[in-house]
């Protein structure tokens, strides 16, 4: 998502302040040198004493791009931020969004959700489940070439063999 372009001697220090991890496929160039801007990217040029603000800005960029999902609960329909959802799963032919302690029915097909969230932090792990990468607590490999995802709410979601490679590629960025 981000590419930090600063002098070599400042790199570690600034990276630490901004908590940036470079991506191979990036959309944003974060730099202290205005000559380092890239014309086909969004460039943020800053001086180091503004690092604090830039840091918050980067958080906003990530969070600001969050999408809201309409869900049905006991209190009716409401929109919730997708980053709060641990995973979507098909139960009784309905798509259910699982949060930390709650679950809601989503009036969308799973593949529609995958199209909407797939380029973000959600990943399809089986025919029945779409998982928020940020909500995975631990990955446990199994004997049968499957993976078991231990979610932060304590649930377990299985990565199907068919989606194993895609899951691995996503983690490899």
């Amino acid at each position: 998502m981000f590419k930090l372009k600063v002098p070599k001697e400042d790199r570690a220090r600034i990276r630490n302040k901004l908590k940036i991890i470079d991506s191979k496929k990036y959309q944003y160039v974060i730099t202290t040198d205005k000559d380092a801007v890239e014309s086909d990217k969004i460039n943020i040029v800053f001086s180091e004493d503004q690092a604090e603000k830039v840091n918050r800005m980067l958080d906003s960029i990530v969070k600001g791009e969050d999408v809201f999902i309409s869900v049905e609960g006991e209190e009716g329909i409401k929109n919730i931020e997708s980053r709060r959802i641990h995973y979507f799963i098909i139960e009784n032919e309905e798509v259910v969004a699982i949060l930390m302690k709650e679950k809601f029915i989503v009036k969308m097909k799973l593949y529609e959700l995958e199209e909407m969230l797939g380029n973000k932090y959600f990943i399809r792990v089986s025919k029945y489940a779409l998982v928020n990468i940020n909500k995975i607590d631990y990955i446990k490999p199994a004997f049968n070439s499957k993976l078991l995802l231990l979610m932060k709410n304590g649930d377990r979601v299985e990565v199907n063999r068919r989606y194993y490679k895609a899951f691995k590629n996503t983690l490899n960025l």
Binding site: M1, K19, I21, S23, L58, D59, V62, Y121, I133, N134, I136, T170, L171, L173
Partner: peptide
């Protein structure tokens, strides 16, 4: 690593 990239 992935979660760090996602600023989590």
């Amino acid at each position: 690593f992935k979660q760090n990239v996602l600023r989590n």
